[in-house]
Design a protein around this nucleic acid. Structure first.
Lengths: 324, 324
DNA sequence: TTGTACGCGTTATCAA
DNA sequence: TTGATAACGCGTACAA
C-alpha cells in the first residue's frame, strides 16, 4: 500500500504538504492541494492510523469494562455510551469481563499501553484502590460514586432510591415486606441490603430471613420465588425486587397460581424495564441510558483537557403503575 | 515515560535484547534477562502498543458492526462474540450504527486504515456489493449467507426456519394464520415474508393483509397487536411472531382480555428468548450465541492465515412448549 | 548469545 | 506558503 512519501513524490510536493492536506491545515496553495488530492484518489491511499496514533499519542478509542453485555441493565448503559461515542466520533472497545478482576486490570493496562484514551468502568469487580494507580495514565470514569478518589463517576444513589421504594410501600400500608436481590455480594446489591435493613430497623418492622432471597437474576428466578412464597406459612404482603424482569417472573407465576396482585401481594420492581411497562409493574427508573451517555461525555471532556474529577449524581423516580 | 531504549541503556544491554525479553524470545542469557526485567520493574515500564501495531501491522482488535446493542437479538450475538474474543485475547470494537450505511462504511474503512485486523458485520444495512471491495484490506465475516462472495459468513436459514414454524402450525391443524414482523424491509424480515407467502400459496391458504402486521419490535407492540386482533371481524387461529418478547406482549394482553391461548389463538414465537420460557411460548431457537462465537472464530482464523472464505450454516430447532 | 542499524508511516519543528 | 529533517517507540535482518 502506498504511503505518504509516495504520494508526495508522485504529486511533486513534500510529505509535509501532503500531511497538511490530509489534516486540513491552512497554508497550502490551491494547485498543490488539488495535485495531492488527485494522487491520493489515484493510488487509493489512506493513512495508516497506527502511525498517527504513535506520533500523536492518541487513539480516539475508549474502553468500556462491563461484566456482561447480555443483560438489560448493561446493554442500556452501553447503548447510552455508544450513542454518545458515535456523536463524538469515538470508538468504543467493549471488554466483557465476567466480573473477573484480572481481566479488568488488563483493560486498565491498555490505558498505560496507550492503546486507548480513556476507560469507563461499568463493572464493580475492582476496588477503588485497585483503580486509583491507573489514573496517572489517563481519564477513568466509574459508575459508582468515586467520592474523594482522583477519578470521575456517574452514579445512582442506590441507597436512597431503594429506600424511596421501601417508603412508598410503607406509605401504602405494607408492613410485611420481602426483598429479592441479584448477586448477594454485588456492590450495589450490598447497598440495597443496608437500605433494607435500616428501613426495617427504623420502622420497627420484623426481619424474616426467609423473605430475603438472593441470586434472582432471570425471569425464571422470579417464578421460583413465587413458588417459594406460596409455600410459606407466613407470607409477606409486599415484595421489592431488584430488576423488573425478575418481578415479571414472580408476577406471572404467582397469578398462574391464583394469587392476585396487588391485593394479596404487592410487587415493586426496579430499573424500569420494558417488560415492566407491559405488566404495569410499579418500579423505579434509574436512568441507565443517561448513565452511559453521561459517562462517555465526562471521559470525553477529560481527554480534551478538563482534568478535575467530576462526580455526577443521577436522579431516580418512582413510576406508579398497578402492582402496588 | 520510559521507552525501550532507556531500559536497554540502564540495564546495560541492547534494545534487541530488551525486545527479546518482552516477547519471550529465546537466546537471552539468564543474567541479562533478569537485569532487563529488574529495570522494567524499576522504571514501571510498559510498551507503547501503538508502536508495536505500526511495526507489526496488526492491532489485535476486531470491529463489530451492529445496528443497536440494546436488543435481545444483538446482545446475545455480542455475548458470543465477546466470550470468544476474551478467550483469544482479542479486543472488540463495538460500532453501533443505527442501521446508517455511512457509519458502517466508516468501520470498513478502519480495516483499510489498519486500525483493526478484521470486521464482523451483524447488521444488514450494507449491500454485499458495498462490502466486497473491502475484502482486499482484511478478513470480513457477515451474519447472512455470503454465497459466492469473497468473504465469510455465519448464517441462519431464515427461510427454512420460518417455514418450519409454519409447517408446525399447519400440522397442528391451523389454517388461518397471521404473522407479526419487525422492520418491514429488514433483510431477514423480507426472507420470512417470502416464506410466509410461499407457504400460503403452496397450502392453498387465504392471504388476509390484515393478518400481516409490521413494526412489531417491543413488548408493547405485541400488546397492540392483541388489541387489533380482538377487534377483527375475522380473526386468525394462529399467529407466528418474530421475537418472543413481542409474542409475550401479545399473549399477556390477549389473556387480559379473556382470550385463551392456545385454544382460541395459538402463538408461535421466534428466537427463544428468556421471557418465552417463562410464558411457555412455543418458539424456534436460532443459536444466536453460537452465531457470535462462530463469527469471531472464523475472523480469528482468517487473521491467522486461513484465507479461503467460509460459510457456516447454523441449525435451528423448534422448542415445543404450550402456546400452540 | 548479543548488538547495530534500519524501517514502519506519520506529524511536529523550524528554517527558508 | 513550502520543505528537510527530527521524532514517536518498537521489531528485526544481519553481522558479529
Amino acid at each position: 500500500m502506498a504511503n505518504i512519501k509516495e504520494i508526495a513524490r508522485i504529486a511533486g510536493v513534500s510529505v509535509t504538504t501532503v500531511s497538511r492536506v490530509l489534516n486540513n491545515h491552512p497554508y497550502v496553495s490551491k494547485d498543490k492541494r488539488t495535485a495531492v488530492l488527485k494522487t491520493i484518489e489515484q493510488l487509493n491511499y489512506t493513512r495508516n492510523m497506527n502511525a498517527v496514533h504513535l506520533i500523536t499519542g492518541r487513539t480516539g478509542a475508549v474502553a468500556v469494562i462491563l461484566p456482561m453485555i447480555n443483560s438489560f441493565y448493561f446493554s442500556v448503559v452501553m447503548d447510552g455510551l455508544a450513542q454518545a461515542a458515535l456523536m463524538a466520533q469515538y470508538r468504543l472497545i467493549l471488554c466483557q469481563t465476567n466480573y473477573v478482576p484480572e481481566e479488568e486490570l488488563k483493560v486498565l493496562n491498555m490505558l498505560r499501553n496507550k492503546e486507548i484514551d480513556g476507560v469507563v468502568i461499568v463493572s464493580t469487580a475492582l476496588k477503588p484502590e485497585m483503580i486509583e494507580p491507573y489514573c496517572a495514565y489517563g481519564p477513568i470514569v466509574t459508575c459508582q460514586n468515586s467520592g474523594e478518589r482522583p477519578y470521575s463517576s456517574v452514579y445512582i444513589e442506590h441507597y436512597a432510591a431503594f429506600r424511596h421504594g421501601l417508603d412508598y410501600l410503607h406509605s401504602k400500608g405494607h408492613r410485611k415486606i420481602g426483598y429479592c436481590e441479584g448477586r448477594e455480594n454485588g456492590s450495589s446489591a450490598s447497598i440495597r441490603q443496608s437500605a433494607f435493613q435500616d428501613f426495617l430497623a427504623e420502622k420497627g418492622l420484623p426481619f424474616d430471613p426467609e423473605w430475603m432471597i438472593f441470586d434472582c437474576v432471570r425471569e425464571e428466578d422470579g417464578a421460583e420465588v413465587a413458588r417459594r412464597l406460596l409455600d410459606m406459612r407466613s407470607r409477606p404482603e409486599a415484595m421489592i425486587i431488584s430488576g423488573d424482569h425478575v418481578a415479571a417472573g414472580l408476577i406471572i407465576e404467582a397469578r398462574k397460581h391464583g394469587l392476585s396482585i396487588p391485593e394479596e401481594l404487592a410487587v415493586m420492581g426496579f430499573d424500569n424495564q420494558p417488560i415492566g411497562r407491559l405488566l404495569e409493574i410499579t418500579t423505579i427508573d434509574n436512568q441507565l441510558y443517561q448513565m452511559g451517555s453521561a459517562a462517555f461525555e465526562i471521559v470525553h471532556k477529560h481527554i480534551h483537557g478538563s482534568s478535575l474529577p467530576v462526580t455526577r449524581k443521577l436522579e431516580y423516580r418512582i413510576i406508579e403503575r398497578s402492582t402496588v
